[in-house]
Amino acid sequence: MQEKELDYILVPLGLVFLGVYHTWLLLTVLFYPTKTVIGTNAQTTHRWAVNMMNDPAANGVLAVQTIRNSMMASTVLATAAISLSALISVYISSSSNVDSISSELVYGNKTDIISSIKYFTILLCFLLAFLCNVQCIRYNAHVSFLITLHGSKSSSQSIEYVARNLNRGSFFWSLGLRAFYFSFPLFLWVFGPIPMFVCCCTLSVVLYFLDTTTSFTRDLHKLSVKDYTKVKDVESGGQT
Rank of each mutant, 00 (worst) to 15 (best):
F184S: 08
L166S: 09
D211A: 06
R164S: 15
L210F: 08
S96D: 06
I137S: 05
G108C: 01
K110P: 00
R164P: 03
F126M: 01
L177F: 10
G192C: 02
V190A: 06
F182S: 03
L223M: 12
F216K: 14
S102D: 12
P195D: 11
I159D: 04
R168L: 15
V143Y: 07
V206W: 05
S155D: 14
F126V: 02
A179T: 06
I117E: 15
I194A: 06
T212F: 09
S144R: 13
G108I: 00
K226R: 14
C125K: 00
L128H: 03
L124C: 03
W173N: 10
S170L: 09
I92P: 00
V198T: 06
L177W: 11
S215A: 10
M196N: 05
S158V: 13
Y139C: 08
L175N: 07
T148Q: 12
L186Q: 02
Y91E: 03
N165E: 15
S94V: 11
L124G: 00
L223I: 08
I101Q: 02
L203C: 08
L210M: 09
L128Y: 05
C199W: 03
S95K: 15
R138L: 11
F191I: 04
R164G: 13
F184M: 09
V143K: 13
S144V: 11
F172R: 02
F216H: 11
L223P: 03
F209C: 03
L223V: 06
V134F: 13
R218P: 02
S204R: 04
P185V: 02
D219K: 13
L149G: 10
F172I: 04
C132Y: 04
F182A: 09
K118D: 12
R164T: 15
H142S: 14
L166Y: 14
K222F: 10
L177G: 13
N133W: 00
V205I: 08
F180G: 05
T148P: 11
L127A: 07
S224R: 15
S156H: 09
L175H: 07
V106C: 08
W173P: 00
L87M: 04
T148M: 11
G169Y: 03
G151P: 08
I147G: 02
T213C: 09
V205F: 04
V134M: 14
V143F: 14
S215C: 08
I137L: 08
L188K: 01
L203V: 05
H142F: 14
I194R: 06
Y208F: 07
F197V: 01
I194T: 10
T202Q: 06
S94C: 07
F120V: 13
I113T: 11
S102F: 09
S152A: 10
P195T: 05
K118A: 08
S154H: 12
Y228N: 14
V134C: 15
T111A: 05
T217K: 14
Q135L: 15
R138M: 10
I117D: 14
V206Y: 09
Y208A: 07
G176Q: 04
I113L: 10
S154V: 14
F172D: 04
V162W: 04
K110W: 01
T213N: 08
Y139W: 08
Y161I: 08
F216M: 13
L131R: 03
H142G: 11
R168Y: 10
C132Q: 06
L175E: 01
D99S: 11
L210H: 09
S224Q: 15
S100N: 14
F209A: 05
S152Y: 12
I137A: 02
L128K: 01
I92A: 06
H221W: 06
K222L: 13
